[in-house]
Design a protein around this nucleic acid. Structure first.
Lengths: 187, 187
DNA sequence: GTAGACTGATTGATCAGTCAATCATGACGA
DNA sequence: TCGTCATGATTGACTGATCAATCAGTCTAC
């Protein structure tokens, strides 16, 4: 519903109708619209976190984990247009909402704490020319940027997600040519 | 005002007060709140476009133009926190507003039409290992992502912008080591 | 019988949009 | 030179709609 109507466009009456209960119950349960939206953000973050850990734990080596992260972030079930519309909706309010900011700060910390060691592990094998932290920060920024562009640009459908994944693989290949082979990646 | 209060938080009465005129004049001049916001977006895009062309035209070679673009997008007067808060506010509504989408599509087209030739020009000199379009797309995504992170993350102040610029320079150096030298870029 | 789950009508606040009234400017004629 | 009028700019009170929050009451399960 947030994806369809935006954060301010969602009304408690809408939520009640969709949930199949009365208005009062929504109001009573969440106390306030702010808290309802915060609960939605928490659910969104948690859903992402679960999917992310699941994919990460499914692989042993750093390169495979990174590839799995690319697949998760760009075109998976938790990063389709609908989900991303919700992320961007919350992003837009973050500068005015300390609760949102806290959630994103913590998510970002956890994210970088998992991403940086992966990059570092590969970097030591390839005699790093650059700070691995910058490489990790760049990859993270790329994901966010590709999410934004999927919302505001002309991206539509799996082909464009495949291109987004190619962009990220090209990025990693540029830094780590040995680890991320030279398959043809033109889309 | 949009940066302070968000798109739905801005009221016509606020605008009138800030502009020092009566409520009715704002209402009469813009006809509708939607059109007022669209005018604000047009002004934002135009301001960016002017700054971008000015910086681009100030240099002759592609590498210098690219460096100027990095400086413009990450930490200049048209990309401070206030401006970026407005961009993200409009981004969040784009999936629901065809006018916004049209503006961003056109801006993106113009942006890539300028960016891709720069990358291509450098790529031919360095025997490209990857499609230059992917490299350009990655840089554009990085800019957007760093904007998002400046809003939602813990970025604050010039030091973090310097780090963001380092990320982009590291990106370009990874693809084009000859053109983008190997200065120490650790922040 | 009672506690807790649940309902939805009501209230009060906010806000976009409307419109009748006012004001400023300048043209025109005496 | 001065008064008069017309036009367009500008005002802000008012209207109607929307919506979060409240609360008095109903239902259900045990």
């Amino acid at each position: 519903m947030i994806a369809r109507k935006g954060l301010p466009g969602v009304t408690l009456a809408d939520v009640a109708r969709e949930a199949g209960c009365g208005y009062g119950l929504v109001s009573f349960h969440f106390e306030t619209k702010d808290r309802l939206l915060l609960a939605a953000l928490d659910a969104l973050v948690e859903e992402y976190r679960v999917a992310w850990h699941a994919r990460s734990d499914a692989h042993a080596d750093a390169a495979a984990k990174l590839k799995a992260l690319i697949d998760l972030d760009l075109g998976s079930g938790v990063t389709d247009d609908r989900h991303i519309a919700v992320w961007t909706a919350f992003w837009a309010e973050t500068s005015r909402n300390a609760d949102y900011k806290a959630r994103f700060s913590e998510l970002n910390r956890a994210y970088m704490a998992r991403l940086e060691p992966l990059i570092a592990a590969i970097a030591v094998e390839e005699t790093p020319p650059t700070d691995y932290r910058l490489i990790a920060g760049g990859l993270s920024a790329m994901f966010d940027g590709l999410w934004v562009e999927s919302q505001i640009g002309d991206m539509r459908g799996e082909r464009d997600w495949a291109r987004a994944r190619s962009i990220c693989r090209a990025y990693l290949r540029a830094f780590f040519p040995k680890t991320f082979g030279a398959e043809a990646d033109r889309v």
